[in-house]
Amino acid sequence: MLNLKAPVAIATLLLAGAAGAATTNGIANGGFETINPATNLPFGWAGGDSSAPVLSDEAHTGAHSMLLSRPGGFGGSALEQNSLGDGGLPALTAANVGDTPWLNFWVKGDVSPTGNAKYSLSYIGDGGVVLYDSGLQHFMDGNAKTDWTQISFQAAAIPAGAQAVRFFINTAVGPLLDGRVNAIYVDDIQLTLTTAPVPEPSSYALLAGGLAVLGMAVRRRRA
């Protein structure tokens, strides 16, 4: 019988080396804890729509969250980040290609009966080309979340050429009804990127040695 113990042992060592895959957050300052004193807003984020988001101490963890609100109705409030341009994170690389990251964040608040809240996740390539867009994902439609609630979403695989991640979240509302407000708190945004490990030269040497041992065993077996 062919003895494969040596090659199997070497393969086990290789797998152990490959277990060093690293995870990082693809969103910068997702807890809104690093504040620009000049603007009193979190570093790395941009706001927009008819009502700009504001810093809040109604936090899930830490000291801050961001409040998206249109207090008078008829409009919206948006928050977004390009991980490379706004967040200052390193560009995505070939080691990220194929990863299907999980997006998680926490929300609470009320959108009012005529309101909703939604988010999207995109991968951006050279020149700002959108390589993937999740489309708008609704997570609140006319209802309220009185307690902090986690929202989770698994994005598509990161394609070759992707350089940055764009995260967008907003609330939009018509007339305010029933005495309810339009106010959404967002906190602890995490995009878990898994970077594929690059085998070290010693791993290639082990692989070559294992193949040589396997070849010798096969030749002896045939003889």
Score class of each variant (00 low, 15 high):
Gly209Glu: 05
Ser50Glu: 06
Phe167His: 05
Met140Asn: 00
Gly127Ala: 10
Asp188Lys: 04
Thr23Lys: 13
Ser83Val: 09
Trp148Asp: 09
Val218Trp: 04
Ala18Asn: 08
Lys118Gly: 02
Ala157Asn: 10
Asn170Glu: 09
Asp86Lys: 06
Ala28Ile: 02
Lys145Arg: 14
Arg219Ile: 11
Gly31Gln: 02
Ala91His: 01
Val181Arg: 02
Gly125Cys: 09
Leu79Val: 10
Asn104Arg: 12
Arg180Leu: 07
Val181Glu: 15
Asp178His: 09
Asp147Ile: 05
Ala196Arg: 15
Gly125Arg: 13
Ala208Asn: 11
Gly109Val: 04
Gly75Leu: 07
Asn25Asp: 15
Thr61Asn: 06
Ser65Cys: 10
Val54Ser: 13
Phe105Tyr: 12
Ser112Met: 03
Asn143Tyr: 02
Gly48Glu: 04
Leu206Met: 14
Val111Tyr: 01
Arg222Cys: 04
Thr171Ser: 07
Met216Val: 08
Ser51Thr: 08
Phe167Glu: 13
Leu191Pro: 08
Ser134Cys: 07
Tyr132Ser: 13
Thr34Lys: 11
Val218Glu: 02
Ala21Thr: 00
Thr23Cys: 03
Pro197His: 08
Ile151Arg: 00
Thr61Leu: 11
Ala18Leu: 15
Gly142Leu: 11
Tyr123Ser: 06
Ala9Ile: 00
Asn36Ala: 11
Gly127Arg: 09
Thr24Lys: 09
Lys108Leu: 11
Thr61Phe: 03
Val165Ser: 00
Met1Thr: 04
Val111Arg: 00
Val186Lys: 02
Asp126Gly: 03
Asp141Ser: 11
Arg220Ser: 15
Asn143Ala: 08
Ile35Met: 10
Thr34Ala: 15
Ser83Phe: 07
Asp57Thr: 15
Gln190Met: 12
Gly115His: 01
Phe105Asn: 04
Asp187Ile: 04
Gly215Ala: 15
Arg220Gly: 11
Ala208Gln: 12
Ser50Asn: 14
Pro71Ser: 07
Gly135Val: 08
Thr171Trp: 01
Leu84Trp: 05
Leu177His: 01
Ala156Thr: 03
Gly73Met: 09
Met216Glu: 04
Gly210Ile: 12
Ile151Phe: 01
Pro197Ile: 14
Ala144Arg: 13
Ile27Trp: 05
Met216His: 02
Ala28Glu: 04
Thr100Gln: 12
Asp126Ile: 02
Ile35Tyr: 12
Ser112Gly: 05
Ile10His: 01
Gly62Ala: 00
Asp187Pro: 10
Ser56Tyr: 06
Asn96Trp: 01
Pro7Ser: 10
Pro53Ser: 07
Gly115Ile: 08
Ala164His: 02
Ala52Gln: 13
Ala9Arg: 15
Thr34Leu: 13
Thr93Trp: 10
Asp126Thr: 08
Leu4Asn: 07
Pro201Gln: 01
Leu84Val: 15
Ala117Ile: 00
Leu89Thr: 08
Thr24Arg: 15
Val97Trp: 04
Ser152Asn: 14
Ala6Ser: 05
Thr23Ala: 13
Ser134Gly: 04
Pro199Cys: 00
Ala28Gly: 14
Asn96Met: 06
Gly135Trp: 06
Asn104Tyr: 06
